[in-house]
Protein backbone atom coordinates (compact mmCIF):
# COMPACT_ATOMS: atom_id res chain seq x y z
CA UNK A 1 0.00 0.00 0.00
CA UNK A 2 1.21 3.44 -0.89
CA UNK A 3 -0.22 5.39 2.06
CA UNK A 4 -1.24 4.42 5.55
CA UNK A 5 -4.90 4.01 6.42
CA UNK A 6 -5.65 7.01 8.58
CA UNK A 7 -8.23 6.46 11.34
CA UNK A 8 -9.43 9.37 13.45
CA UNK A 9 -11.55 8.52 16.48
CA UNK A 10 -13.84 11.27 17.77
CA UNK A 11 -13.21 11.81 21.48
CA UNK A 12 -15.78 14.58 21.76
CA UNK A 13 -17.62 14.00 25.03
CA UNK A 14 -20.94 12.89 23.51
CA UNK A 15 -19.36 10.53 21.00
CA UNK A 16 -17.12 9.17 23.74
CA UNK A 17 -19.89 8.34 26.21
CA UNK A 18 -22.03 6.89 23.42
CA UNK A 19 -19.51 4.18 22.61
CA UNK A 20 -16.32 6.00 21.65
CA UNK A 21 -14.79 4.87 24.95
CA UNK A 22 -14.89 1.31 23.64
CA UNK A 23 -12.55 2.27 20.80
CA UNK A 24 -9.75 3.68 22.93
CA UNK A 25 -7.63 0.56 22.60
CA UNK A 26 -8.40 0.08 18.91
CA UNK A 27 -4.70 -0.11 18.06
CA UNK A 28 -4.39 -3.26 20.19
CA UNK A 29 -7.45 -4.81 18.56
CA UNK A 30 -6.10 -4.51 15.02
CA UNK A 31 -4.53 -7.75 13.75
CA UNK A 32 -0.75 -7.68 13.79
CA UNK A 33 -0.51 -8.03 10.00
CA UNK A 34 -2.37 -4.71 9.57
CA UNK A 35 -0.67 -2.81 12.40
CA UNK A 36 1.98 -1.25 10.16
CA UNK A 37 -0.60 -0.10 7.65
CA UNK A 38 -2.74 1.83 10.07
CA UNK A 39 -2.30 5.19 11.73
CA UNK A 40 -4.75 6.04 14.53
CA UNK A 41 -5.30 9.33 16.27
CA UNK A 42 -7.96 11.11 18.26
CA UNK A 43 -9.92 14.24 17.37
CA UNK A 44 -12.25 16.33 19.52
CA UNK A 45 -14.52 16.84 16.54
CA UNK A 46 -14.65 15.54 13.00
CA UNK A 47 -15.72 17.47 9.92
CA UNK A 48 -19.21 16.65 8.61
CA UNK A 49 -20.40 14.98 11.81
CA UNK A 50 -23.55 16.30 13.43
CA UNK A 51 -24.45 14.91 16.85
CA UNK A 52 -28.06 16.07 16.47
CA UNK A 53 -28.86 14.12 13.32
CA UNK A 54 -26.25 11.35 13.22
CA UNK A 55 -25.63 8.44 15.55
CA UNK A 56 -22.34 8.36 17.51
CA UNK A 57 -19.69 7.15 18.03
CA UNK A 58 -17.98 8.78 15.08
CA UNK A 59 -14.83 7.65 13.33
CA UNK A 60 -13.21 8.90 10.15
CA UNK A 61 -11.29 6.50 7.94
CA UNK A 62 -9.30 8.06 5.09
CA UNK A 63 -11.63 11.04 5.17
CA UNK A 64 -14.85 8.99 5.17
CA UNK A 65 -17.12 9.54 8.17
CA UNK A 66 -18.46 6.41 9.85
CA UNK A 67 -21.38 6.73 12.28
CA UNK A 68 -22.21 4.17 14.98
CA UNK A 69 -18.64 2.96 14.64
CA UNK A 70 -17.56 -0.19 16.41
CA UNK A 71 -14.40 -2.22 16.46
CA UNK A 72 -16.05 -4.65 14.03
CA UNK A 73 -17.14 -2.02 11.49
CA UNK A 74 -13.70 -0.41 11.58
CA UNK A 75 -11.87 -3.70 11.03
CA UNK A 76 -14.19 -4.49 8.14
CA UNK A 77 -13.45 -1.11 6.56
CA UNK A 78 -9.70 -1.64 6.94
CA UNK A 79 -10.02 -4.99 5.19
CA UNK A 80 -12.10 -3.43 2.41
CA UNK A 81 -9.46 -0.76 1.78
CA UNK A 82 -6.64 -3.30 1.75
CA UNK A 83 -8.55 -5.62 -0.60
CA UNK A 84 -9.37 -2.77 -2.99
CA UNK A 85 -5.69 -1.80 -3.29
CA UNK A 86 -4.51 -5.32 -4.12
Amino acid sequence: MSDKIHIRICVGTYSYIMGGAELMNLKEEIPEKYQELVKIDAAVSLPNCDEKTMKPPFVEINGELICEASKETILLKIQEIIESEK
Binding site: V11, G12, T13, Y16, I17, A42, S45
Partner: peptide, 16 residues
Amino acid sequence: EELGSMLAAAEIEMQS
Protein backbone atom coordinates in the same frame (compact mmCIF):
# COMPACT_ATOMS: atom_id res chain seq x y z
CA GLU B 1 -22.65 8.39 33.26
CA GLU B 2 -24.60 11.38 34.56
CA LEU B 3 -21.43 13.48 34.75
CA GLY B 4 -20.56 12.48 31.17
CA SER B 5 -24.06 13.47 30.06
CA MET B 6 -23.81 16.84 31.82
CA LEU B 7 -20.47 17.51 30.12
CA ALA B 8 -21.82 16.43 26.74
CA ALA B 9 -24.90 18.65 27.15
CA ALA B 10 -22.68 21.62 28.02
CA GLU B 11 -20.39 20.74 25.07
CA ILE B 12 -17.35 20.69 27.35
CA GLU B 13 -14.48 18.88 25.67
CA MET B 14 -11.88 17.87 28.25
CA GLN B 15 -9.16 17.17 25.72
CA SER B 16 -9.23 20.79 24.59
